[in-house]
């Protein structure tokens, strides 16, 4: 079987310093996205464990798998979790969720914790859509825009290009800067057309790093227009899987004229983290 370069690494993590048995409220956020699923477990609002894996064709199973993987080696079971919030495209398919909240609200809430309460604009670059979100100092959404009718500018588009060019998805960003000069962007309106255009460029003799640079550039242009429609106010952050791709992040920063904030958290768990924070608030609300 041919190597699939788009396959990003799945992972899980747990805190070595927190003992969940000491906590009052254990909350969980499950983000079942179109491409990836994350489960985040908080103990009294502190990040305790998480997992990130690819979403399968069965959303309830993806949610369960993500949850089980986050719980691995913790000694905790689902029964110990006080409140579960489902988010993402598959949010209604999280069988054990107490409530569902959109990923738009969850990314804003998660980014508020991950990057601090100065965040005002969030770009969530997900698997099959892209959301520009404005929020207040509490992480509550004040406005948002989503890409329409087209998957260009999304994680799935990047995966298609990684496969086409045989570049491991994690290497795409750095490789896209290994060019003498920035090439003109490829078509930015359709992943399929962009792929056709890229195939033509390869035939013309373009090296693959130049082609991937042209696609990163196109993707940046596309999401910049989305951001400009809603108005970008600093501090600005990028969440979702594409937030890890420096080929996009740096180009976007350049086009917008300011840097994105950095964080020690994994940008891909923003949605699930926000959901878990809502879960904590809901658990405490129910208790009072």
């Amino acid at each position: 079987m041919a190597k699939e370069f788009w396959r990003w690494k799945e992972y899980n993590w747990k805190s070595e310093t927190i003992d969940w048995k000491d906590g009052n409220t254990v909350s969980c956020g499950i983000d079942v996205g179109s491409v990836s699923s994350q489960a985040v477990i908080l103990v009294d609002g502190e990040l305790y464990a998480y997992s990130s894996m690819r979403t399968g064709s069965d959303s309830p199973m993806s949610a369960t798998n993500a949850m089980n993987w986050a719980l691995e080696d913790t000694g905790m079971t689902q029964d110990n979790v006080h409140y579960v919030v489902g988010t993402g495209y598959g949010r209604v398919n999280v069988p054990f969720a107490n409530k569902t909240i959109t990923e738009i609200a969850c990314h804003a809430r998660g980014a508020n914790l991950m990057y601090g309460n100065t965040v005002r604009t969030i770009l969530d670059m997900g698997g099959q859509d892209c959301k520009a979100i404005r929020c207040d100092e509490k992480g509550k959404v004040t406005n948002f825009l989503m890409n329409d009718k087209c998957a260009a500018g999304t994680g799935r588009g990047m995966e298609v290009f990684a496969d086409l060019l045989s570049i491991p998805i994690e290497d795409v960003g750095e490789l896209s800067f290994q060019v003498d000069e920035e090439p003109p962007p490829v078509s930015s309106t359709c992943v399929v057309f962009a792929k056709t255009e890229a195939t033509g460029l390869l035939r013309e003799g373009w090296p693959k790093n130049k082609v991937i640079a042209a696609y990163c550039s196109a993707m940046s242009h596309r999401v910049v227009t989305l951001l400009q429609r809603i108005g970008v106010e600093s501090d600005f952050v990028i969440t979702g899987g594409i937030g890890k791709n420096v080929g996009i992040v740096r180009r976007l920063s350049q086009e917008l004229g300011f840097e994105t904030l950095k964080t020690n958290y994994d940008s891909q768990i923003a949605g699930a983290l926000g959901a878990a924070l809502f879960g904590r608030a809901l658990a405490e609300k129910a208790r009072n």
């Binding site: 959109t102 738009i104 609200a105 509550k140 406005n143 948002f144 989503m146």
Partner: peptide, 10 residues
């Protein structure tokens, strides 16, 4: 639906 739900959450 997601747009409307997010709008209502706002």
């Amino acid at each position: 639906k997601i747009r409307v739900e997010a709008f209502l959450e706002m």
